[in-house]
């Protein structure tokens, strides 16, 4: 790790000002990803602004019926929040599907959005990587790419976004509130993360110095008919090969509203709005689910080692839609469900 200076911000304005006053600087939340990347010299900030103790850790009702998740609330506090459990159980399940209890106790909500890919070549500074060093090439294309993207990739980068929480957020469609040198703004979650294109060094659309202050969930939480299905190499403490977040609203057996997002398949949490449109007005049947799943992966492209993900994703979507319709998850697909 390279040396750096450190300061602890007292409020949001102080944090933004302090970061702007230093060149290669970074905001520090829980540190579970940033400090790890600094140990590998993948990230080399000369200055860290600790924002973890800013008063942004509340989870509180919004006047419009939604729920505000503070940027520095931990993943654990968010997952186990009574409002989240009752109104957004898909989010509870997605957070608990990720990482370990220790990591969830430290990691913050904003940090979950800001975490970087776990592409092996991104982590290995001895290999070319366009995300780490723009223009150097992509070692994953033509290399070992079992965990890589099948949707929305580019010739410059086939990395995936590693988050579980963000897949549920993509389905729930919150607003990301940020504060920066030019004031405050709100960003729709689906616009926050970006596809790699020819600039894979940018994971999201934040401008220099902008700090996430909260995630504002809308009222609709799909608490009755939802699922978060995560498929991986071992049943706990592993990143998703493919994950699926589904929220449905049903009238009888007819789907009246639908959300569908995938993890582990793209550079960003992959919400498919066209698939959602295909579901609306249709009967919740295996035939519908199969047709929609085929649509989602119709343009998927394998890279060799990850070809299996296309069929895995197709089947996972069907299973997730089935479980959401039933309003219950298979025991093996649920996380910590005996909790009162």
């Amino acid at each position: 790790m390279y040396p750096f200076t450190y300061s602890r911000a007292t409020d949001v304005a102080d944090a933004v000002r302090d970061k702007a006053g230093h060149g290669a600087s970074a905001y520090l939340g829980g540190g579970t990803n940033l400090i790890d990347l600094m140990k590998y010299n993948v990230e080399q900030p000369a200055h860290l602004v600790n924002v973890a103790k800013l008063p942004l850790d509340k989870i509180e009702d919004l006047p419009d019926g939604g729920l505000r998740l503070g940027a520095t609330a931990t993943n654990a506090d968010t997952a186990w929040n009574e409002q989240v459990k009752a109104r957004y159980p898909m989010l509870n399940q997605a957070i608990l599907a990720g990482a370990s209890p220790q990591l969830r106790n430290a990691a913050t909500n904003a940090g979950n959005l800001m975490q970087r890919t776990r592409c092996y070549y991104f982590y290995d500074i001895e290999t070319p990587c366009n995300k780490r060093e723009p223009g150097s090439g992509c070692s994953a294309i033509g290399g070992y790419n079992r965990i890589h993207a099948i949707l929305g990739a580019s010739e410059a980068c086939i990395a995936t976004h590693p988050s579980d929480m963000c897949v549920a957020l993509a389905a729930l469609a919150p607003t990301v509130r940020v504060s920066g040198p030019n004031g405050e703004r709100s960003i729709a979650f689906e616009d926050f993360h970006r596809l790699p294109g020819d600039q894979p060094q940018y994971d999201n659309i934040l401008a220099e110095g902008e700090l996430i202050t909260s995630l504002d969930l809308p009222e609709k939480g799909f608490a009755k008919n939802f699922t978060y299905l995560k498929l991986r190499d071992r049943h706990s403490y592993a990143f998703a090969l493919v994950s699926v977040a589904v929220g449905l609203e049903l009238e009888g057996n007819t789907i009246t509203d639908a959300r569908l997002a995938l993890g582990g398949v793209a550079h960003k949490p992959w919400r498919d709005k066209s698939a959602e449109q295909l579901l609306k007005g249709q009967p919740a049947t295996a035939e519908t689910f199969g047709r929609v799943a085929a649509h989602v992966v119709a343009n998927a492209v394998g890279q060799g080692s990850n070809d299996f993900k296309i069929e895995l994703a197709r089947r996972a979507i069907v299973r997730a839609l089935q479980q959401a319709t039933e309003g219950r998850q298979r025991a093996t697909d649920a996380f910590l469900n005996s909790n009162p």
Binding site: Y6, G31, T32, N50, A76, N105
Partner: peptide
């Protein structure tokens, strides 16, 4: 592992368990 993957460094901070390898003492 010193990278938050094994849990050998787990300690309690204000009663909550975290990986002490992935957090700075100054925090």
């Amino acid at each position: 592992c010193d990278h938050g993957q094994c849990g050998a460094c787990t300690v309690l901070v204000n009663g909550r368990r975290i990986n002490s390898c992935l957090t700075l003492a100054v925090m």
